[in-house]
Simulated assay, not measured.
Amino acid sequence: MIDRLAQFGVKKWLLVALVAACTVLLLLAGFATTRPADNRPKPPLAMMTSLPLVWSEGGIEADLAKDAAPHPAFKRLSAHYDITPIDDLEAWVPKPKQMLLLAQPRAFAPRELVHLDNWVRQGGHVLILADPALQWGSLYPLGDKRRPLFTSMLSPLFAYWGMELVLPLEDEVPASMRKIGGLPIRTVTPGEWLPKKSTAKGRCSILAKGLLADCRMGKGRAILVADADFLDAAFWQGRGMRILTGKDEFANIALLQALLAALHDDQGLNGDFVGK
């Protein structure tokens, strides 16, 4: 009798252990299938800019300081994208499905412009922020090469694509507030895209009263924004409690993310981005 009870006890223990193991496996399987989307790999994004987004204007010492922090726009963007800063288009080896963000980049040599155009036409996707009159604050005086570029130097590329970047003439230069795709935006001295005759194959649609242009070139696509100041945290982050609570005063960064999402998913901008 004792032997039988002992055997029964062993079998019962094994049964309980088996049930517990199955339960753990089911819970793990359920977690794996319901894990948050944030755990998915971030889409790759290459970025070239003359703005102090990746590195500060204070140099290496400032970037290595204990209280150093990335620019708020870069921090927001890096939460959704795997960002790779680049400074040479010709040496850049794009990852599969990697997009390119050019935010008021340096001037390109003619061969670099040809390289960029070829990459887009072969299926590349690029978002270009081109400001005709950048008002971004800087530690360096006017004329210093370390300052962000005052005006975009990509006019030859835009002209080839059938676009012209202009600065609307106004008596004053107030902050510009617009609503684009349902998003309230604030910036300063934004430019405007105008159509221009070109012999190159492709087509561009002008949206948001000239602030945006959506261009299809060969197998690729380029979204152009006639402004870069809207990335400056001074125009969208707000002050006081807004910073502490993480609530933005204006949706500038949401617009940037929406444009990148449209590029990534190859969605058109017509309709949602007419602008006011």
Rank of each mutant, 00 (worst) to 15 (best):
M1Y: 15
L5N: 09
F8S: 12
K12R: 15
L15H: 12
L18D: 11
A20I: 13
A21P: 03
V24A: 12
L28V: 11
F31K: 06
F31E: 13
P41F: 01
K42M: 13
S50K: 05
L53N: 01
E61H: 05
L64Y: 14
K66S: 10
A69D: 07
A69H: 10
P70C: 00
P72C: 11
F74Q: 09
K75H: 13
A79R: 10
Y81C: 01
T84V: 07
D87W: 02
W92F: 14
V93N: 14
V93C: 02
K95G: 04
P96K: 12
L101A: 04
Q104L: 03
R106L: 01
R111L: 10
L113G: 14
L113T: 08
H115Q: 03
L116V: 04
L116P: 10
D117H: 10
R121K: 09
G124K: 01
G124V: 04
V126W: 05
V126N: 06
V126K: 02
D131K: 05
L134K: 00
L139K: 05
P141K: 08
K145L: 07
K145Y: 09
P148Y: 06
P148T: 04
L149F: 15
F158R: 04
A159E: 03
A159R: 02
W161S: 09
P168L: 01
P168C: 00
L169V: 00
E170S: 06
D171N: 15
I180Y: 09
G182Y: 02
P184G: 09
T187K: 08
V188F: 03
P195A: 00
K201H: 14
R203V: 12
C204F: 09
S205Y: 09
I206T: 13
A208P: 04
A208D: 07
G210P: 02
C215N: 05
G218E: 15
G218N: 07
K219S: 11
L224I: 07
A226W: 01
W236M: 05
D248Y: 07
D248H: 12
A251Y: 06
I253K: 10
A254F: 00
L256Y: 07
Q257N: 12
L260F: 13
A261H: 04
A261S: 07
A261V: 01
A262D: 11
L263V: 03
D266G: 03
N270S: 12
